[in-house]
Every structure is written in C-alpha cells, then in structure tokens.
C-alpha cells in the first residue's frame, strides 16, 4: 500500500518537473541550427512558387511556422517569445490581413473588380498580384500558428494542475 503511494508521488513529481524544465540538448540545438535555414527557404519557395507548381500561401506559411516551432523546442519557448516580442505577432497577423484587403480595395480604386489584379496595369499584373497575395496569406498563417504555439505553451504555468 505504502509502496504504491510513494510510486504515485514519484510520478506526480516527475510530471511537475516536466512542466518547468526545458531540456537543453546539444544534438537538437545543432540539428535545428543546420536545418532551420533550409526549412525557412523551402517555406518561402512554397509561397512564391505556388503559382507555378504545388504549394501556396497556406502550405508555405505552415512550413515557415515550423521553423519557429523548431527554434522553440531547441532553445526554449520562453526565450523565443521574449526575442519575438510581446505584441509583434499580433501586429504581423493583423498587418497581413490588412495588406490582403488593401490589395483587393486597391484594384477597386484602380477601376477593376475586387482582386482583379489586371486593374493595376503593370506587366504580368495578375501573376505578381497572385504571388503577393500568397505571401500575405503565408504571413497570416505563420503568425497565427506561432501565436497558437506560444499561447498553448504559456498555459503550462499557472491555472490548475489537476
């Protein structure tokens, strides 16, 4: 009886310890250092090249967000959050939506329909318009996923632990 109780205590202590501690692993840190620039580039490639091959803003945004997830896992989420800054993510996401709407309204102002890129009258307006819009979609998605990551992690301290 007493043995099982102490075991349960030990387990609870382990879980509480898991909550606080971030394990610094040189292997994970080195791997993330090497891999993350390539993943980031691949995310941008998906956003820009989505017009001519598979991919697009949504997929590219998720891949860019995984860079932030990797950095958080390797170097600790709290330092990463401080590095990013408190209000930055909210500004980035809101700015992405505002830019998307602005592009759409801009075509109406220029005399076309909503998001009718050819109204801008530049060479290959539609192609460049699509690529810019994909980029802003990527910004919105990457910002939101990183925000979800930070917000869920912030729940680990405080609140009830039962």
């Amino acid at each position: 009886m007493s043995e099982s109780t102490s075991e349960a205590d030990l387990e609870a202590a382990e879980t509480a310890d898991d909550l606080q501690s971030y394990v610094e692993s040189p292997i994970i840190m080195a791997t993330v250092r090497v891999v993350s620039p390539f993943v980031f580039t691949y995310g941008l490639y998906l956003m820009f090249h989505g017009a001519d091959s598979s991919g697009g803003g949504f997929q590219g945004g998720v891949v860019v967000a995984t860079v932030m997830l990797m950095l958080g896992i390797a170097f600790g989420i709290d330092p990463l959050r401080e590095w990013v800054g408190e209000a930055t993510l909210v500004l980035v996401v809101a700015g992405g939506v505002a830019a998307f709407v602005a592009i759409g309204v801009g075509t109406v102002v220029a005399g076309g329909g909503f998001l009718d890129y050819s109204a801008y009258g530049i060479h290959h307006a539609s192609k460049y318009g699509i690529e810019v819009v994909e980029l802003f979609i990527g910004v919105i998605v990457a910002g939101t996923i990183t925000g979800l990551f930070f917000a869920i992690d912030a729940g680990k301290d405080g609140g009830d632990n039962e």
């Binding site: 989505g50 759409g104 994909e134």
Partner: peptide, 19 residues
C-alpha cells in the same frame, strides 16, 4: 498568368473566397 490552375482559381478567380 500562372501555370498552377489550382492557384489561379484560389487567388485570382476565387480571390474573395481566399480572403
């Protein structure tokens, strides 16, 4: 002006949906 028809529908023809 894009080769991926999926992207053309997503961002040009149905741009409002994508917004």
């Amino acid at each position: 002006g894009v080769k991926n028809a999926v992207t053309a529908v997503l961002a040009a023809y149905r741009g409002f949906d994508t917004l």
